[in-house]
Amino acid sequence: MPVALITGANGGLGRAIAESLATEHGYHVIISSRNAAEGKAVAVSLLQRGFSASSIQIDLSSDESIHEAVKNIEAAHDELHVLVNNAGVHLEITDTDLSTRQLLNQTFQANTFGTAVLTEACLPLLLRANTPRIVFVSSRNGSISQSLDRDWPMYGVQHPAYKASKAALNMLAVRYVEKLEGVGGMMVGFHPDARSPEVAAEKVVEMATLEKDGPTGTFVDADGSVPW
């Protein structure tokens, strides 16, 4: 049975991705969340319905937490077929008294730095699988071309920390296009603007379950390709 690790899978889009992979595609899903109790509840819900799932606590701001989690995943499964880097924060959509440095630091820790550490830690397990796939859940806000388009509805919206973190995430994804060339890695960006988690999850799951010769190194959402 293929194994998928989904970060931030205790609710919202992450949970919808995990539910789909488990119930529609026959994956064992590892529900990763910062809150251990919430992640366990999602895994138990799937198990009670007869699907394969487990949970693991990962704090993306802690290298120790990340490496301990990957060690436990290796002990339980030996290999990993899919990594969905879904967890992230958007602190600028609410009022905050954080300084510019604090805002950038907290945003990048969750959206970029932790994701980079986790992806690199999972790489040996992914390389043991026949067709490993990595999905980075990004955002159109991370597109430099889109952000400069005056006709884009989000043009002029600030949120520099979030946008910068997602642009950095996109470059991180490109690195794995190069690193996994010829192996079958999948790097895709998607953000569920104004869509339900269930609908938003469809594109992510599609990318996570492509055949070996499917497209790679793409930046897409439900409407098609997104300019880098």
Score class of each variant (00 low, 15 high):
A168T: 12
T112G: 05
L118Q: 01
T96R: 06
G224V: 08
G184W: 07
L47Y: 03
T115M: 15
L126F: 08
L148D: 04
L21Y: 05
F113D: 10
S61H: 09
A194N: 14
P2H: 06
L13H: 10
N10R: 10
P192K: 10
V89E: 03
A167F: 14
G12S: 14
A75Q: 08
V157A: 11
E79L: 11
T7Q: 05
M187C: 07
E178C: 08
E198M: 02
M154D: 12
T96K: 07
I30E: 06
E68L: 14
N170E: 02
V137N: 12
D97L: 03
V44M: 04
V3K: 00
N111P: 13
E202P: 00
N170K: 01
V220H: 11
S99L: 04
E38N: 04
L83N: 02
V135K: 06
T131C: 09
L13I: 15
V82G: 08
H81P: 01
A41E: 07
K166G: 00
V199Y: 13
Q57D: 10
L80K: 13
H25L: 08
A75Y: 02
S54F: 15
Y27V: 01
P124Q: 09
A129Y: 07
M186L: 11
R15Y: 04
V226G: 05
A164Q: 10
E24C: 11
I17G: 09
E178F: 14
G184C: 08
A53T: 02
G182I: 07
A173P: 07
A37Q: 13
A18H: 03
P192I: 01
K40S: 10
Q106Y: 03
Q102D: 05
R195D: 11
T216L: 01
H191T: 03
V157W: 00
K179C: 05
I31P: 05
S147C: 14
D78N: 09
I30L: 06
V177R: 03
D63G: 09
T209C: 01
A201T: 05
G12P: 12
M171Y: 13
P124F: 05
A36R: 15
A222H: 13
H25N: 13
A194L: 14
T112E: 07
A222S: 14
L118F: 09
A75W: 00
I144E: 04
I30F: 07
V84N: 01
L83W: 05
L47W: 05
R150V: 14
V137W: 06
N170C: 03
V205G: 04
A43F: 12
P153R: 13
E24R: 15
G214Y: 10
H159N: 02
V157P: 00
A53C: 04
E64Q: 13
L210T: 06
M207T: 06
A43N: 03
Q48Y: 00
A22Y: 02
R101P: 00
A168Q: 14
